[in-house]
């Protein structure tokens, strides 16, 4: 397991392109990025060049609010299928949430540091950006989740 060994040479890389503000040095200062349609006001995760609602190509980059609320959720009881990078041995059940941000979007995300028994619809949450796993090159792959606020 990755106990407190000295950090390898790798650098930090984002799990998904265009989703995080940079730099990634201080993860507490990193936020999620989105794109807002100048015509209809719809908001999207990451970088998009056209509005999936109205078709406009007049879009601007925004930074999402770190605060949100839990719109709905489920509890992942079994190891998710595919190349899941969270703890598998043992697997730790976690809350999967649809998190509503004041920016007008609901995002599917893990809700961690939260005992599934204590999860409640409408509970306040805040963004957490963290080193999730090491890739083959020894880079720390940065992911996001929400935690109770």
């Amino acid at each position: 397991m990755t106990t407190s060994q000295p950090a390898a040479k790798g650098k930090r890389v984002a799990i998904r392109q265009d989703l995080f503000t940079t730099p990634l040095d201080d993860l507490n200062a990193v936020h999620l990025k989105g794109t807002k349609c100048n015509d209809c006001g719809e908001v999207f995760m990451g970088h998009v060049i056209s509005c999936a609602h109205c078709g406009s190509e007049s879009m601007k980059g925004i930074v999402f609010n770190d605060q949100g609320t839990l719109y709905t959720y489920s509890v992942i009881q079994y190891v998710p299928p595919g190349d899941y990078k969270g703890p598998k041995d043992p697997f730790i059940p976690f809350v999967e949430g649809l998190v509503e941000l004041p920016d007008g979007i609901r995002i599917v995300a893990p809700v961690l540091d939260c005992d599934p028994k204590n999860a409640r619809i409408n509970m306040p949450l805040k963004l957490k950006v963290y080193d999730f796993f090491k890739d083959e090159e020894g880079n720390d792959v940065v992911a996001f989740c929400y935690v109770p606020a």
Partner: peptide, 17 residues
């Protein structure tokens, strides 16, 4: 890929939500 890595790939969980 990022959804799978983050554990967001369990179909029934979306229906459950």
């Amino acid at each position: 890929k990022w959804q799978v890595q983050m554990g967001l790939s369990t179909n029934p969980s979306y229906w459950a939500m």
